[in-house]
Amino acid sequence: MHNDQVQDSSSLMGTQAVDDMSRSFAFTSKLDAIVAWGRKNSFWPMPYGTACCGIEFMSVVGPKYDLARFGAEVVRFSPRQADLLIVAGTITEKMAPVLVRIYQQMLEPKYVISMGACASSGGFYRAYHVLQGCDKVIPVDVYVPGCPPTPEAVIDGVLALQRMIATNQPRPWKENWKSPYEQA
């Protein structure tokens, strides 16, 4: 009796019924495209907010600008649970090893947005204890200018990254990256 039931359903799956179902809701696509679509619309950002940009990032996820509209609302403070690192603020020489470690702990696929002038280039801190851009130690996909950038600019950066993912743009900076501390 039990076997019969299994057989019934399997015969159902292989024939006319599946064709009918596919006509009602399925569609065909490339696997890459559908995976990219899923990835780009469900970022789990980890805000690495160290300074002023971190305060402005609060506005980005806050009620007015609401990053959730673009599928990136699940802010996670554990790198293990995040796929988008948003470096929001100045990275100092003291902080750099910590940032690298956090980046290494993130699981693939992973992306980095450098938010603001300090994270992108050191900004106007051309100074003895400031890393002159977080791309000195980790690979950055999108740079958002501003000091701090307006929330609109950050959202624009997220959308730029979404376009990169949707088009499967090659990322040599990421592929060729190795930790600056592992050369010895």
Partner: peptide, 18 residues
């Protein structure tokens, strides 16, 4: 000692550990 006048403001020293 960075705030001494003879320390160049733009002389960065890197750190590789915590």
């Amino acid at each position: 000692y960075p705030l001494r006048k003879d320390y160049d403001a733009n002389w960065q020293q890197h750190s590789n550990s915590v």
